[in-house]
Every structure is written in structure tokens, then in C-alpha cells.
Design a protein around this nucleic acid. Structure first.
Length: 577
RNA sequence: GCGCUCGUAGCUCAAUUGGAUAGAGCAACGGACUUCUAAUCCGUAGGUUGCAGGUUCGAGUCCUGCCGGGCGCACCA
């Protein structure tokens, strides 16, 4: 239920109210609340249409067109709808098509402008306190385009959910505990020793590649030879602990800077190792033991996830006494719930989807509703290099970093490109092609419309051309607009523009509900297209004063909606191009 | 082998969650700048929505079975 009066929502509400009584008469009154207005594909089919007669026909056991006819009469007779509705038609198998009065559409523009920055925002029926966790890259390397995809998607989702009325916290989970960190620390120590000419040896399982060397260099710069005495024959535990910790800090610092450059900020950075220092991990495990959900077997501690549909039980504590990543994750999610969130949304890569059932099972084991955990699986990014499809891999050196992506095509093009396709399809990225074709990125099409509008608005403010020119002479035939207040008609391009603007609040809502930021890029492109057509057919500053004023309002609202649509996916809206 | 997931124009993707004649952008071809920004607009061409059934007034969308791609199936994370 939108907090804010939104034109399409208002009409829909009035249609529902009007239809409710008749539907009840036919024994299907509960259908009224489900009535939705759609934009027909063809303009001849009206401004909006509804299929309610078709839906009701099955229940009422009467021909759909007969029901449509009755409902259409009701709509025409309804006092509340008369200021909005010009007429209705019945078409096809039983669609009811609505044709709106121009004055009503003009009123919608005024409402939108009055709402200003709030236009499109809403208050959902059940606002939620949401924790949105994404990226959460291991602090042992650099961010690549796979992370970039989740960063762009997650951050856009955060913006959209907030604008749609939810209370969202974005969080980055830091895997700074366990085996991988251990190995990373050893790798850094070896690289550090090499920096100092002490000839350290990278462990067998260690990280090859340039990045650890880069981090070790940073440490060498700030620490000098302070640890030189602790490197041979083996790095001391104290030294390893330092390298682990300092390395992690440095990597996270670079990640944070890189993400900020990408316009992705996190409200919270949550450390895995803190779960152990605070005793939370132990507490979670104890709770599971006490509840009889975790048992010792074969020297390890197992969580009995098969009770809740998982394929096999899962180890929490290894025979070696080391807790698994799964144990950490349980403690982590327990902590999230204790922080009072209604819903936990995790964005995971497709390579982790097999992990979902056990995590859900853990919720049940802790007697929490697994529905509160929503895991969004994002498909992976493949690289195309020299015409070959390759999977990204640090070891194979087939990796494109977030930094390279941003340097290559810029933040706006990169974010638009990444969010524009569904997170649910695998994405092929050819960096060479992406660079060559970056000027063809649809983001510029949308930004250009925005810049164009800004240019018109600038000129209107300086009073340059408004009203001084040839009056209505260049108007397309049939224009009969007069100053506000009088009866007028709308050019088809104006009508299209207004109807497209009126879609915006519903687009935001749909994007939020279906977790699809990509709806916004599609919408922004459509709105820009409709505006460009309007621009070519309907002069603004050169129109007569009344028309010019009205069209300037159309421009203002379009500008606002484009800027907001882009902002919701983290893309800038430049005033000049 | 089992599980999850995706197959839509030559390419990259949409399609208001079951609606009317499946739409955009690139790429191709032909037009429009003495004009509020030509990074734009107009037009042409491009499709058995992987295949086969099913559900109903109606299917790209839901169900079943095949085919093909991706990803998983650890006391790794």
C-alpha cells in the first residue's frame, strides 16, 4: 500500500472499489483486490486494460464478454472514475480497455512534480528490517569482475529496497579465520622474506601470483626489517600472526577503496574471527549440542542436517578439533538474527548453491524459520579471451579485476552493463570487446536524454527562447493545447511520456519484490526512448507559453525519474554530455 | 549418475510473474541537422521462444519427459 499517492495506484484502487460489489454478486468478490491494470502493447487498446472479466468468467460460469460489458458499464457510471475516464471499450476475448482524460494525465504530472524526490517511493504493506550480505570476498586476493557483478547487483538491490520502503543494512562478511587465512599469512611471510633477500619459500598450498607479493611489499615498506630475525629457519608464530592480521587489514583496505570507487559502500564489515574471540561460535555449537541436533561421531562433531532435508549430515568440528566454515556460518547467522533483522538476504555465487540446503537446515536446527533466510544465487562470469571461453581463475591467470574493468570502461558503463542482465544468467565478458564497444553502452543513451533535458531546463531559466518565437506555427497538426485550466488534448508522444512516467512507482515495487534491479535499467532505457521521441515531435521552448509551461513540467518529471532510475542502480545522471 | 540452474532475432538481453500481433539495443541497409544537444529520430530486414507432450478461454511464462550449456555433489571456503 503506497504511502504516496501514485496515479496508477489511485486508478487501480478506484477500479477495484467499483468492481468489488459486482464481483461479489457473481460469487467471486475476493478477486477485486487482485485487479491489476496493464499497459496494452498497442495504443489502440487504450491507456490501460484489465483482464478481470476473463479471470472472473471461470468462477461466475458466464461468458467473459458479458461480464466485461457489465463491469464496463459500472466503471462508466462510477462517480469517482468520471474525472479520470474518458471512455471504456471491450475487446478481444473480454478485456476492458480504459481511455483516460487528458486533464487527468496532466494532473498526474503535477502530482509527480509535487512529490519530487519522493515520486516512486512507497511504504510496503509490511516494511522489513533487512540484512543484505554480499561480495564477502576472501581477504586473500583482489576483487575480480565476478565480485563486481555481485557488488553492482547487491548495491543496486540495497538502493531499491530502501527506496521501496524497507530498512536495509548492507554487510560484508570477512573470512579472516581458518585455513585459508593461515596459508595466506605464510605466503606473505615468505614473500616478505624474499623482499628482504632472506629467500623465503612459498608453501606448497600457498598463493602464487603477484598480489601477495604486492601486499608483502607494503608490509615491508611499513615494517622494514623488524621481522627479519623471525623468518629463519621458519617464521615464528608471532610473526605469522602479524602477517595474517596486517595482511588482512591491507587487503580489506584496498577492497574497500576499490568498492568505494565503484560506488559500493557497506554499512557494516563483520569479522569471522570475532565470532571466536567473543565466544559466539562456541555458544552456537553448544546450543546445537544441547538441542540434540549435533552429535559426536567418528571423532568429529556432526550437525544432523539430514533431519531437515539435506543430503548428508555435515561436520561442525573436524577430528583435528578445528571448526569448519559451516560452524562459523551458523554462528554468524545466529548473530544476524540476534541483531533483530526480520529477513536475511545473502547473495551467493552459483558455485555455492549446493550449500543452501545445509544452511536452511541449520536454521531449523536452531529453531528459526528458514523462510527468514533468503539466498539469492548469482550466476558466474565467464571470460572470453582470444575468442575462447574461459573460467576465471587466479592460478591460471585468466582474471580480470574490478579495477581493470573500471579503468577500462568507467563506473557508469560497468555498473549498467553488469546490472542490465538478470543475475540469474551466466555472463560472458570479453574485455577487449567491452572496451571497444563501451561507447555503445546503453547507459549513454539514457544519460544523453537526461543531459538533453537539463539543457532545455537551463535555457528555460535564462528565459532565452521561451515564448518569443513563432507561437504554435511549428506544432504538429491537431494540436489544440491551451494554457493550463482550459480543455486540451495531448499529442500522442506526450501521452506516451506521461503513461511511461506513471509506470515508475510500480516498476520500483516490482524490482524490489522480485529482487530485479535489471527492471530499472530496462525501464530507464524505455523512458529515455519515449522522451527522445517526444523531443523530436514536441518543441518545448518554441511552443506557445501555455504549451511550453506544460512541456517543461513533462521535462522536469522525466528528468527526475531518469535520474532516480539511474541512481537506483548506482549510475550517475550528468547534466551535460 | 544425482541435485540446482539457464536455453527467446546473427550478438547482448527484455517481456509488468498466465494476457491481445513476443519487444529493445548492437550489428546490416535506406532516410532526417539553418532547429530546445544527431551520443538523437524515422523506415526496412531479422522468430515454429531448444524439442515433444500436458494444464485452459489464453503458455516464452505453470507441469512432465527429452536435448544442450553452466554450477555443485569434502572433516575446502
Amino acid at each position: 500500500m503506497p504511502e504516496i499517492a501514485d496515479f496508477l495506484f489511485q486508478i487501480t484502487s478506484l477500479i477495484r472499489e467499483t468492481a468489488a460489489q459486482r464481483l461479489a454478486e457473481w460469487g467471486c468478490g475476493e478477486l477485486a483486490d487482485g485487479i491489476e491494470l496493464e499497459r496494452p502493447a498497442i495504443s489502440k487498446h487504450g491507456d490501460y486494460s484489465t483482464n478481470i472479466a476473463l479471470v472472473a468468467a471461470g468462477r461466475a460460469k458466464r461468458p467473459p464478454r458479458e461480464l466485461a460489458s457489465q463491469l464496463a458499464d459500472d466503471f462508466s457510471a462510477a462517480r469517482t472514475l468520471q474525472p479520470l475516464l474518458s471512455h471504456t471499450e471491450i475487446a478481444g476475448p473480454g478485456f476492458i480497455n480504459f481511455f483516460l482524460r487528458p486533464a487527468a494525465l496532466a494532473g498526474a504530472v503535477q502530482t509527480g512534480i509535487t512529490l519530487g524526490a519522493r515520486f516512486g517511493s512507497s511504504l510496503p504493506a509490511a516494511p522489513e528490517k533487512i540484512l543484505l550480505e554480499f561480495v564477502s570476498a576472501n581477504p586473500t586476493g583482489t576483487l575480480h569482475v565476478g565480485h563486481a557483478r555481485y557488488a553492482a547487483y547487491g548495491d543496486a538491490l540495497r538502493r531499491i529496497l530502501e527506496f521501496a520502503g524497507h530498512d536495509v543494512t548492507s554487510e560484508f562478511y570477512i573470512n579472516d579465520y581458518g585455513t585459508q587465512m593461515e596459508i595466506f599469512g605464510r605466503t606473505l611471510a615468505a614473500r616478505y622474506a624474499q623482499e628482504l633477500g632472506l629467500g623465503g619459500k612459498i608453501p606448497d598450498e600457498g598463493y602464487q601470483g603477484e598480489y601477495p607479493r604486492h601486499v608483502a611489499k607494503l608490509i615491508a615498506e611499513e615494517a622494514g626489517d623488524r621481522f627479519a630475525g623471525e623468518m629463519t629457519p621458519e617464521p615464528t608464530p608471532a610473526a605469522l600472526s602479524f602477517f595474517r592480521q596486517r595482511g588482512c587489514e591491507l587487503v580489506l583496505g584496498e577492497m574497500r577503496a576499490e568498492l568505494e570507487r565503484f560506488r559500493v559502500g557497506f554499512d557494516s564489515w563483520f569479522s569471522e574471527s570475532r565470532l571466536y574471540s567473543s565466544g559466539e561460535a562456541e555458544a552456537a555449537i553448544e546450543e546445537l549440542k544441547r538441542a540434540g541436533e549435533a552429535v559426536e561421531r567418528e571423532g568429529a562433531l556432526w550437525l544432523l542436517t539430514t533431519r531437515y532435508g539435506d543430503d548428508k549430515d555435515r561436520v561442525l568440528i573436524r577430528g583435528s578439533g578445528e571448526p569448519t566454515y559451516f560452524a562459523s556460518d551458523i554462528a554468524y547467522h545466529r548473530d544476524k538474527l540476534e541483531r533483530g533483522y526480520d529477513r536475511l538476504i545473502n547473495i551467493w555465487g552459483a558455485d555455492h548453491h549446493g550449500y543452501v540446503p545445509r544452511m536452511k537446515a541449520a536454521f531449523e536446527a536452531l529453531a528459526h524459520d528458514p523462510e527468514r533466510l533468503e539466498i539469492i544465487i548469482g550466476q558466474l562470469v565467464n571470460l572470453i579471451q582470444m575468442g575462447e571461453r574461459r573460467q576465471m581463475s587466479k592460478r591460471a591467470g585468466t582474471m580480470v579485476t574490478l579495477a581493470e574493468l573500471v579503468d577500462g570502461i568507467g563506473v557508469d558503463a560497468a555498473r549498467f552493463f553488469l546490472v542490465d542482465r538478470s543475475h540469474d544468467t551466466t555472463l560472458d565478458l570479453d574485455m577487449e570487446k567491452a572496451k571497444l564497444k563501451s561507447e555503445e553502452n546503453p547507459v549513454y543513451y539514457v544519460q544523453y536524454a537526461h543531459a538533453r533535458i537539463c539543457s532545455i531546463l537551463r535555457k528555460s531559466e535564462t528565459g532565452g527562447e521561451a515564448g518569443v518565437e513563432t507561437g504554435g506555427e511549428e506544432e504538429p497538426a491537431g494540436a489544440t493545447q491551451t494554457a493550463a485550466g482550459g480543455p486540451f488534448s495531448l499529442q500522442p508522444q506526450e501521452r506516451e511520456l506521461i503513461l511511461k512516467q506513471a509506470d515508475f512507482p510500480a516498476v520500483v515495487r516490482a524490482a524490489a519484490i522480485t529482487r530485479s534491479p535489471q527492471r530499472l535499467t530496462t525501464y530507464a532505457r524505455e523512458l529515455a526512448a519515449v522522451f527522445h521521441v517526444f523531443y523530436h515531435n514536441c518543441p518545448v521552448l518554441r511552443a506557445d507559453p501555455g504549451t511550453a509551461a506544460f512541456r517543461l513540467d513533462l521535462c522536469r518529471l522525466t528528468r527526475y525519474v531518469i535520474a532516480r532510475s539511474l541512481d537506483l542502480v548506482g549510475v550517475a545522471a550528468p547534466e551535460k554530455m
